[in-house]
Every structure is written in C-alpha cells, then in structure tokens.
C-alpha cells in the first residue's frame, strides 16, 4: 500500500516537474524575445554597460577602439551621406558577411546616420566598445552568460576588478565562427620511451559513423 502511494507521488512529482520545466522554458523564451524590447521601450540612457543585468557582477570591457586595425568610418563617411540601400560594396569595406544567414547587411548593426556608432535592433545608439549590446539583440542567452561570466573571457585576475573581453575580441562580427587553427605539439611520453600507437578505431556507434 505504502509502496503504491509512494509510486503515485513520485509520478505526480515527475509530472509536475515536467510541467514546471515547460513553463520555465516558455518563460525564458518570452524573456529572451522581450528583453531588447523592454529596454528599448525604456528609452532611458541607451547602452549603459551593465544596464541589461544590473545584478550582474561589475565589469569593464577591455577597449578595442584604440587598436590600430580599427578605422574611423567618419574619415570617409560624412554625416548623412550613407546610402541605406543594401548593395554590393566596393573599396575598403568587408566583402562578405557570413553572419545572420544572408539577411544582414552593414546597416543591420552600423548606424547609417552616425557612422562611428552601432545601432541595436531597438534603435539605440551604441559605441563600438559596447558592441555586446548589439550582439545581445539576437543572442540574448549568450549575452546573459557573458554578463555573468559564463561566456567570454576574463582577462584580469579572478578576484577584485573584473575586466572582460568584448564579443568581437574573439568573434569577427562579419564572420563570427571561430576559425580552425593548428594545434600545439603532441604531448610527450617519458624520456627514453617511445610513443605507442594503440589507438582504438572510432566507434561506439554514433550512429555507426
């Protein structure tokens, strides 16, 4: 008798847990979709670092603007002369945008009216050193991780001041996938011994490869 009742409770628990999970998932989806809108609606002080998640531990982003590979767009672009029409660009622009599945073009992220700035999907003006605010328009989950330290890289020590890298430090916004690279040398075996080639064939069925 007791066993049966336990069994039933456990089923109930499992069900409610499952239900809870679904609710959570829905909620998180809503939050994810809504986050930029909510902030956009606020209209207050767009693009203040840390504003998206005020409860996140404080941080500063290692600046990128002063790096030599950065061009001042306004050297060529004067105010208001940017043609908003999507087209193939010549001269010193990025040729290919391998990001966003062909739906993107320059002004998806760059601010055409104020070419030294970026613009979020909710029309906030954002400095190049705050590019993470742009990335978060789509990658909200990742952005949250980044704020809290679950994604990205901390370049300062583990305690005290928290200096972290911007998204664009590792991900070229025009081609964000990390490029393959040659690995460092193979690990050694003990001095005086030779490496043994006993590597098993790759299987364990996934699925029969």
């Amino acid at each position: 008798m007791i066993i049966t009742s336990c069994y039933i409770t456990s089923i109930k628990n499992a069900e409610s847990a499952e239900g809870g999970r679904i609710v959570l998932r829905l909620l998180s989806m809503i939050v994810a979709v809504a986050t930029p809108c909510i902030i956009g609606a606020g209209e207050s002080d767009p693009g203040q670092p840390g504003q998206r998640y005020p409860e996140a531990p404080e941080f500063t982003v290692q600046p990128r603007k002063d790096k030599p590979k950065f061009d001042d767009c306004s050297r060529c672009h004067e105010e208001g002369d940017t043609d908003p029409e999507p087209r193939r660009l010549k001269t010193r622009h990025v040729r290919e945008i391998d990001h966003g599945g062909n739906r993107f073009w320059c002004l998806t992220c760059h601010d055409g009216d104020n070419i030294d700035y970026l613009r979020t999907s909710s029309n906030e003006n954002v400095d190049f050193d705050e590019s993470y605010l742009i990335c978060g328009s789509c990658h909200a989950d990742r952005q949250k991780d980044w704020y809290f330290g679950g994604h990205g890289k901390r370049v300062s020590g583990w305690q005290d001041e928290r200096v972290i890298l911007a998204c664009t430090e590792c991900h070229d916004p025009h081609k964000p996938a990390v490029k393959p690279r040659q690995p460092r040398p193979q690990p050694p075996v003990r001095i005086g011994l030779e490496r043994q080639e006993n590597h098993p064939p790759a299987t364990s069925r996934a699925w029969n490869r």
Binding site: P180, R181, Q182, P183, A202, S204, A206
Partner: peptide, 20 residues
C-alpha cells in the same frame, strides 16, 4: 568522438593540420 563519452576512445596524441 561526438556522441560518446567513452574515454577509451579518447585520443590524447591527436595531430592534425587544424583543429577542431
């Protein structure tokens, strides 16, 4: 190997032109 956590199939001495 993707799809497996079997350490016996792990290779510590991998050598490739590029990884991953």
């Amino acid at each position: 190997d993707e799809g497996s956590m079997n350490l016996e199939l792990a290779d510590r001495y991998y050598e490739h032109e590029t990884v991953p």
